[in-house]
Design a protein around this nucleic acid. Structure first.
Lengths: 223, 223
DNA sequence: CGACTCCTTGAGCAGCTTCAATCGATGTGG
DNA sequence: CCACATCGATTGAAGCTGCTCAAGGAGTCG
């Protein structure tokens, strides 16, 4: 998932139309917690999440971890830089992925349609990462949490009339590492939103956004 | 410039070999402060910085600004996402750029060599943005400033035997907005490095790294 | 020389983290 | 079926990092 600041400006990116050859693209299954690849691995294939959710992470030597992105259905992951992966990728829940040969990105591999779709995905990823940079560099803890919930519920949540609901597959710690915060700060922000009546919590994972517009305002940091 | 955490692992990205057709790529000149494009503009061309330095920025409604990257010679800038620019780009000093038609990225435009070079640049940019995310999400102010100086001096500085020297074209405020800090905090970090004997300052813009290895350790956050 | 801009430095404060304890849900064994 | 262990989430209290506000210094340009 690429939690962007400008999610509201763009349509939900639908699954790129499977190109003709895509029907032949093999599926990969990943159990909860299983790794798809690790930082430093050579890139042989790209993947599109079909179902489930994956987590892309990077580590520092001393153990600090950054969650770079969450991969939701439709997202393309595994772009190489200098031929190898620069994140770890593992599954938050049982996940199915469609895999493509790296050559499909590099030179089309006989399928210009797929080639273009992968290229577009890479370009969108640049923009998504820039959104993330903007968020981490400029936004407060409350704004980051609101941004995260705003995007994830709008893109992947269920429409309940005035409300939106979603089941979060990641724990507070994952959200914290995604937002550059601590678990405690994320938790406090959730509580604060709940007490303000903007969201409701049913257990820790199920979020109902009672006031989507308020949430969006908070996300944008309008005072 | 894409100040990465892992700059030391990679060779300085040389100017991609000008493909045959590149000789015909037109040059653009940009005076100090001039804009090359703005957020929302449709992308017609991509650019490679030939000389000078540009600044890529994004704004929030309330005026908060994030410097996404500094574009140094060799860097490719202007990648489209959904057909338009998602940053502003302006010149920190007089700058020359080589421009390419967007079609060269999209489908090669009759030059597969150039097509591949642009694609590789886009993929490296994803990785660079991830480095930036890691830095903003996990590193302290001192580590960020050390990372910035470490990368910029190693990639673009002059080799003075044991030392490295560089003239910074950007002001403290630009660095602050790049690192997600305030001008004051950046200034204090510079002073602290100077007092520790790691760097020397000759005026505000000229930095000499007296102890490159110490600087790198500080950048990586090894305690 | 004076005006302007940018950089530096200081003091106080706020926001987020750290450390620690409790709560709550889930699962296991008696 | 219930007691208990475990793990993640929440809450509280205290501390530190980085921000805000303010003043002074340094370099630049008319």
């Amino acid at each position: 998932m690429y939690v962007t600041l400008s999610a509201e400006n763009r349509p939900v990116p639908e699954l790129p139309q499977p190109a003709r050859s895509v029907r032949h693209a093999p599926l990969t299954r990943l159990g909860t917690g299983q790794h798809l690849y690790r930082e430093g691995d050579p890139v042989e294939r790209l993947y599109q999440v079909v179902s489930g959710v994956v987590r892309l992470t990077r580590m520092l030597e001393d153990g600090r971890r950054q969650v770079i992105a969450f991969g939701y259905p439709g997202d393309i992951i595994g772009f190489p830089a200098d031929g190898c992966h620069h994140t770890d990728c593992d599954a938050l829940v049982d996940t199915t992925l469609r895999s493509y040969r790296r050559a499909a990105l590099d030179h089309g591999d006989g399928d210009p349609e797929l080639h273009l779709a992968l290229l577009q995905a890479a370009l969108r990823e640049i923009s998504a990462m820039q959104d993330h940079v903007m968020m981490l560099g400029q936004k407060s803890a409350a704004e980051r949490v609101a941004s995260f919930l705003n995007v994830v519920t709008r893109k992947y949540g269920a429409d309940l009339g005035p409300c939106r609901q979603i089941e979060l597959p990641m724990c507070r710690n994952d959200i914290a590492d995604f937002l550059g915060l601590t678990t405690e700060t994320v938790s406090r922000a959730f509580t604060s939103l709940r007490k303000a009546g903007v969201i409701a919590l049913d257990g820790a994972q199920t979020i109902t956004v009672l006031e989507p517009d308020t949430l969006e305002e908070l996300a944008l940091g309008s005072d």
